[in-house]
Write a protein that binds this DNA or RNA. Structure first.
Lengths: 335, 335
DNA sequence: ACCCAGTCATGAAACGATTCAAAAACACGG
DNA sequence: CCGTGTTTTTGAATCGTTTCATGACTGGGT
């Protein structure tokens, strides 16, 4: 029961393997009658193309890899959703890899993807230490587009949202609401998005002489938010508002606060980041900094294919989107 | 700047390609000194193995594919998370494919996966029409494990949760709370999980002479829940409780009701299904039927590797878990 | 009859790794 | 220095496609 190959099909149809290949790849180049005979043989034997052999010959796979920080975060699934249609309409396949905010996992994925000779890579790097690895891939002719990563002086295309500005928006909103002491929850600080959002927040706090307390978390998830809040509630003179590095953290914080009987927003306001669908459906609908998630994915894919098409004489482009604040109940002044 | 191959490494190190291969695959079989020389050459040239060639020779890839109904649904990401460690510790790689509840997309993925000669397949089929395609894969020696799919008389291993029982639990809970007219929201009915949950619910309603109204949706997401509720609010003599086919639908329904000023649970109770993390954090914490998601994934992967190991003389196993109801505010009797 | 232009089909040469029988290199006791 | 046994290395065959130069055949046009 060994898998049937083109050779078997060829024999069954009484033609050469070259002809079978042609039937599959340029059907118009083979005579009607022969084609029918070959197709019949294919159906008959239940023949299935061997992609490894195909790729080996082609030297390149049709796979576009997307490496994200956390597949369980709706922000990233939305980005992926945005990229998929474009990739597929270009005849590609998308594979999603989850680094889980872990550099070692990310590295493992990159090694594998390089061995697979992927067509291209969209990646949200865990932190700056990833740079050398990413360089390596693009040095080996695998085009890379950075997603949600600052328009730094990286030698790559990138799409990003201005996170410093996003941080400012959140902080300004809270300051306008009269808060004089704000907590920032998120981490680890090595994640660029976290650092930028905090930086923006800090700028505004300093400009407005508002006190800022930072609660670092080990990751950007539900759990982390809940735990950070526990810690915050322990301290005396506690902040009257928190700005969370993303919505998952914010939802965790919200739940933590509620469990401890702290009323949101009366006793503590919350602003999240990303504006995922769940934010609006939360126990207290969350104010959040919205990013154009699907568009981020779509644009990234577009840049990738542009780079592939332009080949050698391609100049990298860095697209930056502006975030906007969506105010909801979690920062309302009164009910 | 063509990619460097083993031949290049061999030349640089002054050995044959066979030796280079040995250094990579059975280092103990090659002399210390030679090995060092080869490794140096590899590092020097920045050589990267070509996985296509490897697979072609091996006849099989190391990839385990997981085909899910909706990657954006935390239920499935949790299942994937459960399966991953086991697969990776067995030297495999996981690739996640999203069928989006669409048979055509699912089919496209299956075709591709077969061409890729994947090591094995974990799949939650969209509906029964997928059966013949799945049969085809396993006929071609690709082991398949059905996930979250009834212990029917399929010729495969499977892991599942008793959805009929889950439906009963939900309905019983609502009946106990005194509801006499219940709505079921979910669809399409062709999805087995939906059908089973509805069946269980219907059984209980008939036993207790409780009226049941079904609102069919085109999919199992947020959006669908919100729209179904709009429709429900239109009808007179409206149900006092809804049972949603999953938590995403339930969260949508909750938002829809809230937007129309209907108080949950006083004017309308809600029970969801899956007990995803967001359920507990919802505007009104959701009562939900909990499934052991991670364990589902872990067990599925285990069954897959068992089947691979046992080879020819393998007998399929069907593991069924029991769901449990978690009661929260969305079905509370009073506040 | 002859040539030319199309159409189609062929078969061998890649692609890059793994495997394995056989050769080479080495060690060591006699 | 030989024979024997062990450790290393070699080189060719193989996996299943795609590609492309070459050749076979057809049907006009002159």
């Amino acid at each position: 029961m060994t898998t049937t190959s083109m050779k078997d099909v060829a024999r069954a149809a009484g033609v050469s393997v070259g002809t079978v290949s042609n039937v599959l790849n340029r059907p118009e180049a083979v005579a009607e009658e022969t084609r029918a005979r070959v197709l019949a043989a294919i159906a008959d034997l239940g023949y299935v193309r061997n992609d490894s052999a195909r790729q080996l010959r082609a030297g390149r796979s049709r796979t576009v890899a997307i490496v994200v920080l956390d597949v369980a975060n709706p922000f990233f699934t939305d980005v992926v959703r945005g990229a998929e249609p474009l990739v597929e309409s270009a005849g590609g396949v998308v594979t999603v890899c989850d680094s889980g905010e872990d550099v070692r996992r990310e590295r493992r994925h990159l090694e594998l993807l390089e061995e697979q000779r992927v067509l291209g890579l969209l990646i949200t790097p865990v932190d700056d230490s990833s740079a050398s690895w990413i360089e390596r891939l693009s040095g080996h002719d695998i085009p890379v587009v950075l997603v949600d990563r600052g328009a730094g002086r990286h030698p790559h295309c990138s799409v990003a949202v201005d996170d410093v500005h996003g941080g400012r928006l959140a902080a300004q909103h809270l300051v306008e609401r009269g808060h004089r002491k704000i907590a920032f929850i998120g981490g680890p600080a090595s994640i660029p998005q976290v650092a930028d959002r905090l930086a923006g927040c800090r700028e505004v706090c300093e400009e407005s002489a508002v006190e800022l307390e930072v609660f670092a978390t080990p990751g950007l998830n539900f759990q982390a938010g809940r735990e950070a809040v526990e810690q915050m509630l322990g301290s005396e003179d506690r902040p009257t508002a928190v700005f969370c590095a993303n919505d998952l953290v914010a939802l965790g914080a919200l739940q933590g606060l509620t469990m401890h009987g702290v009323k949101v927003p009366q006793e503590c306001a919350i602003v999240g980041y990303d504006d995922i669908d769940f934010a609006a459906a939360a126990a207290v609908p969350l104010s959040s900094v919205r990013q154009p998630r699907a568009q981020l994915g779509r644009t990234a894919a577009q840049l990738l294919f542009d780079e592939i098409a332009e080949g050698r004489d391609h100049t990298h482009r860095n697209v930056v989107f502006q975030p906007e604040l969506v105010a909801r109940a979690s920062t309302a002044l009164e009910l």
